[in-house]
Design a protein around this nucleic acid. Sequence first.
RNA 1: GACCCCAUCGUCUAGCCUGGUCAGGACACAAGCUUUUCAAGCUUGCAGCGCGGGUUCAAAUCCCGCUGGGGUCGCCA
Length: 436
Amino acid sequence: MEPIVEDKGNTPVKIRVRFAPSPTGFLHIGGARTALFNWMYARAQGGIFILRIEDTDAERSKVEYLDEILRSMKWLGLNWDEFYKQSERFDIYRKYAGQLLAEGKAYKDGEAVILKMLPDQVKIFDLIRGEIQFDTETIKDQVLMKSDGTPTYSFACVVDDALMEVSHVIRGEDHISNTPKQIMIYQALGFKIPKFAHLPLIMDEEGGRMSKRAGAVAVSDYQVQGFLPEGIVNYLMLLGWSPGNNQEKVNLDAAVKKFSIKKVNKAGAAFSMDKLKWLNTQYIKEMPVGQLTDLLLPFLKEKGYGDNTDRKWLEEVVKLYQPRMSTLLDFMDWADYLFEANIKATDEDSAKYLTSDKKEGFRLLAEGLAAAPNFDHKATEEVFRGVVAKLGIPAGDLVHPVRIALTGKTIGPGLFETMSVLGKDKTVRRLQEAFG
RNA sequence: GACCCCAUCGUCUAGCCUGGUCAGGACACAAGCUUUUCAAGCUUGCAGCGCGGGUUCAAAUCCCGCUGGGGUCGCCA
């Protein structure tokens, strides 16, 4: 089956799209969304997804950034079919600039090459917004090649899009006003003009411009914060697009099947950390424990918890926390008492829960647990129930103080499971030492 | 300021193209159930077509204006 679409002239056009980041910073969450929509469109149409690095600015471009962008793309699962770097194509841009000079369509100003803007009404056809019209009279002459011999963004972009036979330019709305300038370049060069699709911008939680101080903006920040690529990708696709049928949780494969660029929204979308977390929670919940444990390993290692932990035991612990985690980092916050030698509750919690009337209960419990033949949650519960029955108090009276003593926290999984994974030695010792 | 884009619950959205379903779903929020806590889960609730004119028997839906928000005006990308 040939992946084609009909254009106006009825000539079959191969779908070719590109994502063109500049390695002057980390892969931004907005950039990731642009990449995602390009990727989905390519996959949905059986087309080609090109990754083109726009590193014409040698000053600001850094290899670290390039590496990070590539890493983030792979992490998100956005694989590319072709790869280019503009810094390796300067000869090409120079050649076309020379051509325009020779044809008298551009002129020199010092070493710079500048395109004459002809008065014209430029129409661009945008797949999302329809027809947009500009009057080039208000646009000044455009620099093509800078005095230092390097191409400007618009020039390199147009030359590459044309030479790489990009059929659809899918990019952020912030590029709308670049488009008429670029069309003038296409026309001067005699290149075929591609179709455009300008995506709505992602705003911060307050509806303003996305900025660093508004929280995480780099994809890698979200990775560090314990988000899963599945959750991020799912969330990002919902910003400006809907899979329909009231579906919210949709994986990449399913999304590709339903994706249509024409169904993309026009209005900007505010980012919601809450909803991202909710989706992340959904993906964590459905993940096989073994896989989740694997993902947790690097986080544990970084905290120095990773070494010589028993895998089977670790998976049991993970299973306990899996239903209540919304990011991988939650596990690190909640399960630390299992890895630390000593734990401490806040003074406030100690004062509230570890009151002297609990001493007898703690003593009996420590004694009973120490003598328990085994230490699964059934065994620990049996001992516990025996103690509260003997004391004639409600279970809750002892449950909360014990949890504080064992974990340093007021929240957590069931107490008996908690004791079981903590192990007999630590459990008994922490009970004995609870009152100093 | 000039040019351009946009406008449905607090937020993301379905519905708009091809006017006529109590404007549907999700997150968040609130309440309840469950319960040894916190989550999760289930149930219920709260909440919206920016304003003003048209067109029409009928407007969230079509047209115009206003207001509001956003973007661009670099030898950055």
